[in-house]
Amino acid sequence: MKSPVIIGSSEGAVKYMGGFKTIANLVKAMHDDLGITVPIAIHLDHGTYEGAMKALEAGYTSVMFDGSHFPIEENIAKTKEVIEAAKQKGASVEVEVGTLAGEEDGVMGSGEVADPEEVKIMADLGADMIAAGINNIHGPYPEG
C-alpha cells in the first residue's frame, strides 16, 4: 500500500524480543536490506521513564512516556527530560495525563478525566502527542 508504518512495542514485549537495540537494529536492517521505501516509526508504547530513555538511546524514533501514575509535578519533570532527550535524537514523544482504565504490561489504571490545565502544561512542554484520560479503557476489559 506504500503507507508509512508504525512498529510498536511495549516494555514487556521488548524483554522477550532481545532488548531495545535488537528491535531497533532489526527494523532498520530490514528497512535497508529489503529496500523499503516508506517511513517506518519504531515506537515504545506506555514506557517508563527508564524505558523511554533506553529506547531513545537504542534508536527508537518515537516513545510514549507514561508518567500518569506519578504526582503531576513529577510527571512534568520527567516528561521535560524525555522530551529533551527525544528532540536531541529527532524522535517524537507521546505523554499521558490522567490515567486510562485497564491494564498495560501489568500496570493497572483506574481511569479518570484528565485536568485540562495539566494537558495544556504537557502541550506547552513540547509533547508531540498527548494521551489524555477521558474515562476510557485500554487493554483487557475488566470483568463485569
Rank of each mutant, 00 (worst) to 15 (best):
L26G: 12
F65V: 09
D124R: 10
A91R: 02
Q88F: 07
T61N: 00
E143V: 15
E73I: 02
P71R: 02
T37R: 12
S62E: 09
Y60G: 00
H138M: 09
P140F: 00
I36F: 05
T79D: 04
E81P: 03
T99R: 15
G67K: 07
K87Q: 13
F65W: 05
V93T: 09
Y60K: 02
V38M: 05
E73T: 09
D32P: 01
G102I: 01
V93Q: 05
N75Y: 04
A77E: 15
S92N: 10
M53D: 02
P71C: 03
E84V: 14
S10C: 03
G19L: 04
G35A: 02
M108F: 15
G106T: 08
E73A: 14
H69C: 11
V5T: 01
I7K: 03
K87H: 14
A24V: 03
K54E: 15
G59A: 02
M1V: 09
V14H: 05
V93L: 07
A13M: 11
N75L: 05
A41I: 06
L125D: 03
V95E: 08
N136V: 15
P142V: 11
A131C: 13
A13E: 13
M17S: 14
I42A: 02
I76L: 10
G18F: 00
V63A: 03
A86Y: 07
E50S: 13
A114M: 11
G106E: 06
V82S: 07
V97C: 07
E117L: 12
K54W: 02
A41K: 10
F20N: 01
M17E: 12
I42P: 01
G35E: 02
L34N: 07
M108N: 11
V95P: 08
K78G: 06
V14T: 15
N136Y: 10
M53Q: 12
E143Q: 14
E81N: 11
H46V: 08
I76W: 02
S92V: 13
K2R: 15
E103W: 04
Y141K: 10
I83V: 14
N135G: 14
I121H: 09
A114P: 11
M129Y: 13
A91Y: 03
E50Y: 09
E74F: 02
I134L: 14
D124L: 08
A127S: 12
G8E: 13
P4S: 04
N135V: 11
D32L: 13
E118S: 12
G12N: 12
Y49T: 09
V38H: 05
K78M: 11
A41D: 11
D66M: 09
A55N: 00
I76M: 08
G144S: 14
A85G: 06
D45E: 08
A77G: 02
M53T: 06
G12Y: 11
P39L: 01
I23D: 01
A91T: 06
D124N: 15
E57W: 00
G90E: 02
I6P: 00
D115E: 10
I36N: 00
P142L: 14
E112L: 12
G90H: 00
E96F: 08
A123P: 03
E94H: 10
G109S: 06
M129C: 08
M30G: 12
D33G: 12
I6C: 00
E104C: 11
A101N: 13
M108E: 12
A132I: 05
D32C: 08
